[in-house]
Design a binder for these strands. Structure first.
Length: 613
RNA sequence: GGCUUUGUAGCUCAACUGGAUAGAGCACUUGACUACGAAUCAAGAGGUUGCAAGUUCGAAUCUUGCCAAGGUCACCA
């Protein structure tokens, strides 16, 4: 039994014995003792005042007396207000440290339960940007966390490879590309295709602007504007209607999409070629970011799925049909209104596809848990989707989860493609690595290493700064991204934690072979030493908490706290020249365990540790 | 307007899910490198947790009402 379980169980037993009152072990209110007080764990005794009919201080005193008298692992207690502070024995901590030191992995054993997680989900008409990075880091980290808990994790990427957007790029390239390729242009494939998407938008805007000044444009504005609406706002809102109804270039793009749907070979070939360029580019980005996927689903394969499910649901009365043949679901009793699932012409919508894809994924892998990492603008969509799956009787409906995260704002405002304020993923990674390189070169700790070794370290440091900066923020919160701060290397940052790890490796290298078997003879643990072990003890809880909440930020903050305590320990205690052989053995073992724990925790965030920096 | 999320130090974030005097980093002021790496440590200053009620022994956290910001209310994806 672990020390926290022991305290909870002991407290429940004590309350029963002393006051004849039943307490559920899990209801015992206990937390880590605050820094300013003595002790390791604190039990809150207020809840027992009624049953005991005594003052909190007296209850705490009696419970403390009981616990310390009964359990050897608890050595001392003190009472402040209604809080019972308990001190854990040095022996317990020492044995716990030795136990962790002996483990070759901190992962939980595999139990075979499947966990599927979808993240990234890019469109193929544009390169990845900062928003994707947050998405990818969250998805990747959650996958790692569930893997560490013993799940069989399946990482999925859904590629939105079809639709009007990619047709725009294709059309622009066809019109103006003259057979150019990313290679001949010297541009990364995804950026290259993105360039043509922008070219299309330019053409369209030029056409749209001209139209606005034409007689037709004036007529539409005069007849359709809402009162008090100025020309600019009106035409902003009218853009899609114009694209669909009046635009020549829009008509051409739509014609291309229709050809694509008809399986026109010329269009399909072009589509394959340009998507191929994009995938090459994406793969480079993913590799630089250090992530990969187990399975890819292409929307071009799945966009027709779901219709059968709708048919089936119509039969069983889950959906209903309107006079115009469109199919709907009534979710008013779940406070979700009515939702269209099939158009009047029988074609599917986004929701239809998602229903079909969910079914297909379950058929393919049988994962009872499926997580979608998607920005919070789609909260409503997923509420509806999950409700529909439940009503359709999907066996896995309870295991569906939307990992919703807030969008990223820049210090200068929102990211908007129209205003050119998109932060490109490739540029960003290059910038952080450059910053790390500049800093490390100035420091000069890496002299003597080869060029490749150095570059590898710069990459690890730069990415650690970027990744940690993003992932330390609670996932569901909107966050502000300041490029200057994302390359910070001091304070609450990835490199700060890496530095703790590097110091540990440096000490261990210098110490050489040390016999740690006498570590248990060390009986006078200092406060910071106890803190470190009790923090290592917390790891399991933190990982579980992060998993339950689908939020890696818990682990990021934990790693920072641990590194901070280690830095303090490093400053306050001599390790290699410790006051006694036992103390040295103990501290070396402590360094090993902290190093292992930091590396483990950071790996769950997708952050690598360098040996030197 | 309906539904929904978020308001914590100048800035960026925490607060172990209702517990003790709300904590970190950055920026600012100061001290510590001839002891294992100063990307470090130590200290100072910085707060009416948007506002107001309520529940509770106890509220940043729960409830309600305001205020502010974001999202969403497409036969788009």
């Amino acid at each position: 039994m672990s020390i926290t379980e022991l305290i909870k169980e002991g407290t429940a037993k004590a309350v029963k014995d002393l006051y004849d009152h039943e307490v559920n072990v899990n209801d015992v209110n206990m937390n880590v003792t605050r820094k300013e007080f003595d002790g390791d764990y604190s039990v809150v005794v207020f809840p027992y005042t009624k049953a005991a009919k005594k003052k909190p201080e007296q209850i705490a005193d009696e419970l403390g007396e009981y616990l310390v008298g009964k359990y050897d692992d608890l050595t001392k207690y003190n009472v402040i207000k209604g809080f019972l502070n308990l001190e854990v024995s040095d022996t317990y901590w020492n044995q716990y440290l030795a136990k962790v030191a002996a483990q070759d992995t901190l992962k939980k054993p595999a139990h075979g339960e499947k966990f599927m997680i979808e993240f990234s989900s890019p469109n193929t008409n544009k390169p990845l940007h900062l928003g994707h990075i947050r998405n990818i880091l969250l998805g990747w980290s959650c996958a790692k966390i569930y893997d560490a808990l013993g799940y069989d994790v399946i990482k999925v990427q859904v590629v939105n490879d079809r639709g009007i957007a990619i047709c725009k790029s294709m059309l622009a390239w066809q019109m103006m590309g003259n057979g150019e390729t990313p290679e001949s242009a010297g541009i990364k494939g995804d950026h290259y295709v993105g360039k043509w998407y922008v070219e299309f938008e330019k053409l369209f805007q030029a056409e749209y602007q001209a139209w606005q000044k034409s007689i037709n444009g004036h007529f539409i504005f005069a007849t359709q504007k809402k009162k008090e609406q100025d020309q600019k706002t009106f035409f902003k809102g009218y853009k899609n209607t114009y694209f669909n109804n009046s635009s020549k270039i829009g008509a051409a793009a739509k014609a291309m999409l229709l050809k694509w749907e008809d399986g026109d070979t010329e269009v399909k070939d072009l589509w394959k070629k340009m998507n191929g360029w994009v995938y090459e580019g994406f793969n480079v980005t993913y590799e630089n970011l250090g992530v990969d996927f187990d399975q890819l689903y292409y929307e071009s394969d799945t966009y027709l799925l779901g219709k059968d499910n709708i048919e089936k649901g119509l039969g069983s009365g889950i959906f209903y049909k309107k006079e115009d043949n469109s199919v709907w679901i009534d979710l008013e009793d779940a406070k979700l209104d009515h939702k269209l699932v099939l158009r009047s012409d029988g074609t599917s919508v986004y929701m239809t596809q998602d229903i079909g894809t969910a079914e297909k994924r379950f058929e393919d892998h049988g994962a009872k848990q499926m997580v979608y990492v998607v920005a919070d603008e789609q909260n409503y969509h997923f509420k509806v989707l999950f409700e529909i799956m439940k009503r359709m009787g999907a066996s896995y409906a309870e295991g569906l989860h939307h990992l919703s995260y807030g969008m990223i704002d820049l210090t200068t405002g929102k990211m908007k493609s129209r205003e050119g304020t998109i932060v490109d993923a490739d540029d960003l990674m290059k910038d952080v690595i450059d910053a790390a390189r500049a800093n490390a070169v100035e420091r000069g700790e890496l002299d003597g290493l080869t060029h490749e070794e150095k570059e590898d370290i710069f990459r690890k440091i730069g990415l650690a700064a970027l990744k940690f900066f993003i992932i330390k923020v609670n996932a569901k919160k909107r966050m502000v991204f300041d490029p200057a701060k994302s390359v910070d290397l001091q304070g609450d940052t990835g490199p700060y934690i890496q530095n703790a790890y590097v110091r540990i490796q440096s000490v261990l290298r210098k110490a050489g072979e040390v016999d740690t078997s006498i570590a248990k003879e060390y009986k006078t643990l200092g406060e910071t030493e106890r803190d470190l072990i009790s923090q290592v003890f917390r790891l399991d809880d933190v990982v579980q908490l992060a998993a339950d909440n689908y939020d890696p930020s818990f682990i990021a903050n934990y790693c920072y706290d641990l590194a901070k305590t280690y830095h303090k320990f490093y400053h306050d205690f001599r390790i290699i020249n410790a006051e006694s052989p036992e103390a040295k053995a103990f501290r070396i073992q402590l360094c090993q365990v902290i190093g292992k724990t930091i590396a483990f925790g950071m790996d769950l965030l997708g952050i690598e540790m360098p040996e030197k920096m």
